[in-house]
């Protein structure tokens, strides 16, 4: 049903709004996946990257970083000063591993929504050792370009766009198109994680919606190099299946094997097996999406 779009997907050319809506509405899920996979292969060939991340959820400074290529602070700071203090402590414990942290939304809230103050906060966090913001949830900002400029002005990288909440496919398409526009306007986005970080408890997102989202994000955001799925949030099975729908990067693969992830979480080396079993070539990468051995 979507065969007429296959050559466009293979060329890597970005899909229009109408084409994206058509793909989202297509009942033939396998055809949707074919488009996503064609576009992924056009851009990345057989290679699927993965990033080992050590998450710092509270204010506990990591002592064992395992295979981490990025240390990511996921908590919300109570103030810019507290954020800087935590960053300094984490950076000191992380050696030469890049430290990212916080959500752009939280940082903007801390400074009362003022873009100039945000740039200043970014400068202070950068001086403390933070390399970039961990999350840039495009669903939270109608005009995200100015925010990116403010954060970058302060010295922080905004290399990864994310989504906090988007429970409908229509809302997800808005986010996807916002990221495509953001990349055209400010550039330098290296990755997009289109699946929401927060889900509805009563009606969680479904597998169909998630893989459709992946495929359409791949097709619409042709200028964003990497399309990610979070290993911990979405689990090994969906993260792997997403490769067949256009994802080329598995993010947030645990750098260590904490027992708290439970017996169904694969050990950190299992990521290689999962990607290989998806008929792709696994390649580790760092937080700048540079391949590492």
């Amino acid at each position: 049903m979507l065969q007429d779009l296959e050559s466009k997907a293979s060329s890597g050319e970005s899909f229009s709004h109408e084409e994206a809506e058509r793909v989202l509405a297509c009942a033939d899920l396998v055809s949707v996946g074919t488009l996503g996979e064609l576009a992924r292969r056009a851009r990345h060939g057989d290679v699927v990257t993965y990033g080992h991340v050590f998450e710092v959820a509270g204010d506990a400074v990591p002592s064992e970083l395992g295979d981490a290529r990025e240390v990511r602070i996921t908590s919300r700071p109570v103030s810019v000063a507290a954020g800087c203090a935590l960053v300094r402590a984490v950076v000191a414990a992380s050696g030469d591993i890049p430290v990212t942290g916080f959500s752009a939304t939280d940082l903007l809230d801390l400074v009362g929504g003022d873009h100039l103050a945000l740039a200043e906060a970014a400068r202070e966090l950068c001086a403390a050792g933070l390399t970039g913001v961990a999350y840039f949830p495009v669903d939270r900002f109608e005009e995200p370009a100015e925010l990116v400029r403010a954060l970058r002005h302060g010295g922080l990288e905004v290399s990864r766009a994310s989504v906090d909440r988007a429970s409908t496919l229509a809302a997800r398409l808005v986010c996807i198109e916002r990221v495509a526009a953001l990349q055209r306007e400010v550039g330098a986005l290296l990755a997009f994680a289109p699946l929401p970080r927060f889900d509805e408890i009563e009606t969680p997102s479904t597998g169909y919606d998630d893989v459709r989202t992946i495929a359409v994000a791949r097709l619409v955001c042709g200028e964003v190099p990497s399309l990610q799925v979070d290993w911990v949030l979405y689990g090994p099975k969906l993260a792997q299946v997403a490769i067949a729908y256009g994802a080329n990067d598995i993010d947030n693969v645990p750098a260590t094997d904490p027992l708290g992830l439970g017996p169904r979480r694969s050990p950190r080396i299992d990521i290689v097996r999962q990607i290989s079993a998806a008929f792709a070539t696994p390649s580790a990468r760092n937080s700048r999406f540079e391949r590492v051995s």
Partner: peptide, 13 residues
């Protein structure tokens, strides 16, 4: 065994 998401995707396979 597969979880709800892959369980649902089964309907396309």
């Amino acid at each position: 065994t597969q979880g709800g998401k892959v369980g649902q995707l089964s309907l396309a396979y």
